[in-house]
């Protein structure tokens, strides 16, 4: 325990590690800008998340590092690969004349933010506004109120239970949205949408051709969907007459 208080002896290797990780992050991010193969971009995005997770450990955020390694480097890479498989393999090059505008915006925004860095508290300052009030109160009170060692879990589940409930509902609704867009068996919305909103229904989907039962239900569904607009059309003039 006395070792951890002696910060100066630990500082030099930590700074070297931090600078190494940062350099790696910058290299990976620039590589993502330059790459055109979508497979390489997706994998580099996973590498970026994993290096970020390593830096989170160095910044004392072990829970966040754990989550980033599991989610950012694991699940999101798998999802992006699956989507890439359904979409495309290569991205087309963007002509240089179309890159000046974004470059200008990004440079101006970055310069403005770097100017604002002078107003930020120093790195690791214990008395900065962010580290002074409520965060440190959580550490002081967790031992008495909740009596578990992991303060992050205590804040997550108890002090900020409403927040986490909201996040759970967000995840639930995101899952619901994906199921509505793609379908749990990958057969949702097998109709070809026209760009300005006309729908042309395809009664038989490739997935439906495999099993007969879903093939039988599809035309009924189509009829039902086609019937709905007619009904609403019939009801609106009535309302207008009255």
């Amino acid at each position: 325990m006395a070792v951890s208080l002696n910060a100066s002896s630990v500082a030099i290797p930590t700074i070297a590690l931090d600078i190494g990780l940062m350099a790696l992050l910058v290299v990976v991010a620039f590589a993502i800008v330059r790459m055109r193969s979508l497979f390489a971009i997706v994998m580099l995005q996973g590498v970026y998340s994993l290096v970020c997770a390593a830096w989170f450990v160095s910044l004392d955020a072990v829970d966040v590092a754990f989550t980033e390694a599991a989610v950012g480097a694991g699940v999101s890479t798998v999802l992006m690969l699956a989507a890439m498989l359904l979409a495309d393999r290569k991205s087309e090059p963007v002509p240089m004349k179309r890159q000046w505008g974004p470059l200008l915006i990004v440079l101006i925004a970055g310069a403005a933010m770097i100017l604002a860095v002078g107003d930020m508290p120093n790195y690791g300052a214990a008395n900065s506004p962010a580290n002074s009030y409520v965060g440190m109160d959580y550490i002081a009170r967790t031992a008495e109120d909740i009596d578990i060692p992991n303060v992050v879990t205590a804040v997550l589940a108890s002090y900020r239970g409403y927040d986490t409930f909201g996040e759970t509902v967000v995840i639930f609704s995101a899952g619901l949205g994906v199921l509505l867009l793609l379908g749990l068996n990958g057969n949702a919305g097998r109709w070809r949408a026209k760009p300005n909103g006309h729908r042309v229904f395809r009664p038989s989907a490739p997935a439906a051709a495999v099993s007969k039962t879903s093939d039988e239900t599809k035309p009924n569904e189509t009829k039902k969907r086609r019937g709905r607009p007619r009904k609403s059309k019939a009801s609106t003039p009535d309302g207008g007459d009255k």
């Binding site: 989170f56 550490i139 060692p149």
Partner: peptide, 17 residues
């Protein structure tokens, strides 16, 4: 990363009591 950088206290430990 920006958020986590702000939360670091020099000489500090991970917030596990």
């Amino acid at each position: 990363l920006l958020y986590i950088t702000i939360s670091k206290v020099s000489g500090g430990q991970p917030p596990i009591l």
